[in-house]
Write a protein that binds this DNA or RNA. Structure first.
Lengths: 183, 183
DNA sequence: TTATAATATAATACT
DNA sequence: AGTATTATATTATT
């Protein structure tokens, strides 16, 4: 078997592989840009223009299509990688943001504990886990809150001073920063 | 495949001088599985066993490595796609979470507006944009808040009833849900 | 090693 | 059925 196979391979004729020159490649590429599929008419035209057998034009197109497929895979891969990077970075920013929001809610809760003793609010927002384990509550709208509270509040204007003290206590300065919310 | 070529391939294998047969492929593949790099000693051994010139073994390994590379690219692509999916889903969840936290902070702020009239806290946390435009402030620690406030609060125990009313007003029930935070 | 030409086979579509 | 075209894999050269 060994000598047989050896001879088999030695008897193979040498392939005369001729590279296409730059001009030929250029024309083929520009043709490929317009249509990935080689119409018979186009094949003959290219063969005539380039002095190449139509058969070779077909082969070139086949190989070019195979190459094109791999190129696309790599391009898509890079695009995907970019998407992932931005997604991860945005995720990180959101994590920081939620951390900050939880911290502020904790501060406010401390304030309420201080004001109200034992009956502190249990903010579900400050749970460590991401999954919101609490059922949705019907939340009163801005207008509802305002209309309800305005009448209620008149009786408690004497508290203003104490609240200002509290603001300072928890580190939230009032009316002195350039980040006023629009609401 | 037409019957002519089929017959040629099946019953006249000797005419197919170029392709390696199944047995040869099998041995080469198992060898490639163990090491992607072809040591000279291994090359001679395979050449002897398969009746193939060492040169052909080298070529086969080169081509096999190229194919292996492309295979890996496709595998990596799929893995990346999976990563992106999970990242996007986690991002979405975080967006919901921040939205909820902002809402709660707004509620609390409404409460403070109601209590304190014009001097509402400007929560930087409730800005719509993601970028935190505000400089960091030194925040007082938990212990600081407690120690400062405990002494301060004793004078205001009369406010308890009003705060309980406020809790109900903004929809945050106190002490009646199963989501107590650990702090 | 990379790129690519050339060949071989399998799959598909059209006649 | 046969014929043609294409996609894919493989071999080989530069």
């Amino acid at each position: 078997m060994n000598s047989q196979n050896l001879q088999k391979y030695q008897s193979l004729p040498n392939h005369n592989k001729k590279r296409l020159n730059q001009e030929q490649i250029k024309l083929l590429e520009s043709s490929f840009d317009s249509t990935k599929k080689l119409e018979p008419e186009k094949k003959l035209q290219l063969a005539r223009e380039l002095g190449i057998p139509p058969r070779q034009i077909s082969i070139w197109y086949q190989n070019r299509r195979a190459r094109w497929k791999n190129q696309n895979l790599e391009i898509d891969y890079n695009a995907l990688q970019l998407k992932l990077e931005t997604a991860l970075s945005e995720k990180l920013q959101l994590e920081k943001e939620t951390e900050r929001l939880r911290g502020e809610l904790q501060k406010v809760n401390q304030m309420l504990i201080a004001l109200n003793g034992e009956s502190a609010i249990n903010f579900p927002s400050c749970d460590v886990s991401l999954s919101s384990c609490c059922e949705e509550r019907g939340s009163s709208s801005f207008q509802d809150v305002i209309s309800y509270s305005t009448t209620w509040v008149h009786a408690h204007e004497a508290n203003n001073l104490q609240f200002n003290e509290l603001y300072a206590l928890i580190g939230l300065e009032e009316g002195s920063n350039n980040c006023r919310s629009a609401w």
